[in-house]
């Protein structure tokens, strides 16, 4: 739905999916598959960074409504995985089951396992706050803490989780640098976070997540409220971060998925619960989707 305009062009230029591969190189230099293939694909295991995350048969409910059905999906350590699909297909719900934010909705229910470093994060006796320290999250709307300054926001995770840090100044600079905000914010650390623009606030939120050194970072449409310039900066940030951590990003923007992700997972709901239709290396998913429904979606025929 969101990207029909962007994609209509590609769809028109590639009327026959069978010939897509040849045509792409000749006539559509900006096709999704092309964007994706310009990235160097990370093979799982080549960079043993952070921890991998494995979802095993995850179902989710809101009250009686079955929202997510039997999703099994691996996120290898050090890779970026994009979750794509139309609105209401359960992408965000799935993302929130991965760091146990799902349970904050009063009517929520769940089945299945999510393994972090081989251990089920839903196992009895698991300290959920420790899980969320290891699996950070960036939300759709920038949500810096309004009562804190920029600097305090970055370090808020340290205080909230009562961690010990020897040199907070170094940590502050490191996190803001990694989030691509240091140059803009270094002289404004004592200003309130609300003085920043939307894009800067979102990068501040990323910096805040980084300060507690998560192994996995979940991003729920982090650029949907931002202008193209800020989106570009955040995509750069994601690429840099993926050197050291596992990233799962929900996005409505397929161009974005193609630009930033190593793997893409397509989810869909046919009115019932959302399901995982197909997961593949991003280049492959956009150029040679195995499932007809994936193909329809990535070529912009629906959604």
């Amino acid at each position: 739905m969101t990207n029909n305009d962007d994609l209509a062009q590609n769809a028109n230029l590639e009327p026959n999916p069978g010939e897509k591969k040849e045509m792409k190189t000749q006539t559509t230099p900006h096709s999704l598959a092309d964007v994706a293939s310009s990235r160097e694909i990370k093979q799982p295991g080549t960079k043993p960074l952070g921890s991998g995350l494995e979802a095993r048969g995850v179902h989710a409910w809101f009250g009686a409504k079955h929202a997510l059905k039997d999703v099994t999906l691996d996120f290898a350590a050090g890779t970026v995985t994009a979750l794509i699909g139309p609105s209401g297909c359960g992408k965000s719900t799935f993302l929130r089951t991965l760091n146990r934010m799902h349970e904050f909705i009063p009517t929520a229910a769940l089945a299945g396992e999510v393994l972090l470093g081989g251990k089920d994060i839903y196992a009895a006796g698991t300290d959920v706050t420790k899980i969320r320290l290891r699996i950070g999250m960036v939300f759709q709307k920038p949500n810096p803490f309004p009562s804190m300054t920029i600097g305090q926001n970055v370090l808020s995770g340290i205080k909230l989780a009562q961690l010990k840090v020897s040199n907070t100044d170094d940590l502050l600079e490191e996190c803001l640098t990694r989030a691509g905000l240091w140059e803009e914010a270094k002289d404004r650390l004592n200003e309130h976070a609300s003085a920043l623009s939307g894009g800067q606030q979102q990068r501040l939120c990323i910096a805040r997540s980084l300060a507690v050194r998560p192994e996995v970072l979940l991003m729920d449409e982090p650029c949907s409220a931002l202008d193209p310039g800020s989106t570009f900066r955040i995509e750069q940030t994601i690429s840099e971060l993926s050197q050291t951590m596992t990233i799962v990003i929900v996005t409505h923007n397929m161009q974005q998925a193609a630009r930033v992700s190593d793997y893409s997972a397509f989810m869909l709901s046919d009115g019932g619960p959302g399901e995982l239709i197909e997961v593949a290396p991003t280049t492959e998913l956009f150029s040679r989707p195995r499932d007809k429904r994936t193909e329809d979606y990535v070529t912009g025929r629906f959604g």
């Binding site: 760091n99 934010m101 904050f104 706050t129 420790k130 899980i131 969320r132 320290l133 950070g136 999250m137 939300f139 949500n143 803490f145 009562s147 808020s156 995770g157 205080k159 909230l160 989780a161 009562q162 939120c205 805040r208 997540s209 507690v212």
Partner: peptide, 18 residues
């Protein structure tokens, strides 16, 4: 609230600090 909790804070820590 979710931002605080997602940073690994307990509920009361989030309430008190955020």
């Amino acid at each position: 609230r979710e931002a605080g909790l997602a940073l690994g804070a307990t509920q009361w820590r989030t309430v008190a600090m955020v």
